[in-house]
Design a protein around this nucleic acid. Structure first.
Lengths: 154, 154
DNA sequence: GTGCCTGCAAACCGTTTGCAAAGGG
DNA sequence: CCCTTTGCAAACGGTTTGCAGGCAC
């Protein structure tokens, strides 16, 4: 959804269309994905008075509206992104912290079997896989000590 | 690994075998899975002086040793469990917060394809699926308002 | 004895809350 | 005008850090 469409969606629910809400949505779209803090920084480039609290409240609201969604990519702050870009799963490297993307289709068979066996409706947009990325797997073989010192997720 | 084996593993690395470390491992094993806070509570039943800080440091150490591992089951504190019980994936319900388990084998095809395409070694023990469980899916249809009011993960 | 480990207190990060003031309808 | 929404400040939960003392080796 665009920032323009947002105003209507809000009014349709008896909520108020405010500059802050438009700005937060625009920031999420512009970033593609980002933590609440990152979103706030970007909003503050345009409107310095906007508060982090408002960003949190607005992200929650936008998620209710189905306009954005979030994933927990590990230990820290969650990542928000426009719902219509939630077309991939995340591969989070435990060693270097890098996040890459993989085709959602890879996980569809898993979602189907979990639905069949457990009646559980998996939200694939929230799916993240933890493990070790290609470059870290290679580097990891070089030195045991080096691996140990960087093997913590937090 | 048992609490007895731990002492040897520690000494083999020039580390010290302490009662606290044995107790934390025993607590994780006894609980099957639990947050640092839960682990600490259980340790304190036996040794009230043990500090939460020590539990955090020990869980990190035990994870380094490969004796325990942890998963992020969503918004809050992570869950630790013995590595040799990491034979299932977690299904976390967004509505009621319940956590159920599913067979690891369901995700093995996913792990294989991600390894093939991206060179990414998925740690299946850390895998959790977010979505809506069977009972909440049924309850959710009853009232739109009720759904909205409980649809937040945090 | 040496130095790793522990307990305590305080800082820390990300997030939420209470409240008065601002501003959208 | 009313009532939602905002900004601020303070509290919050979970985790980490610095440091002095204790205990395994």
């Amino acid at each position: 959804m665009s920032a323009e469409g947002l105003d209507e969606a809000l009014r349709a629910r008896g909520m108020r269309a405010t500059p802050q809400r438009r700005l937060v949505l625009e920031a999420v779209i512009a970033l593609g994905h980002g933590t609440p803090e990152k979103v706030c920084e970007r909003v503050q480039n345009v409107a310095p008075a906007v508060n982090l609290t408002t960003v949190y409240r607005t992200l929650e609201l936008l998620e209710d509206l189905g306009v954005v969604s979030h994933t927990h990519l590990g230990h820290g702050a969650p990542t928000y992104h426009p719902s219509d870009e939630a077309d991939h799963i995340h591969l989070v490297c435990r060693r270097c912290g890098s996040v890459s993307e993989a085709d959602l289709a890879l996980a569809e068979a898993l979602a189907r079997s979990v639905a069949g066996r457990h009646g559980f409706a998996t939200d694939l947009a929230h799916l993240s896989l933890h493990g070790v990325c290609r470059s870290c797997a290679g580097a990891g073989e070089v030195s045991g000590a080096a691996v140990r010192s960087t093997s913590h997720e937090r």
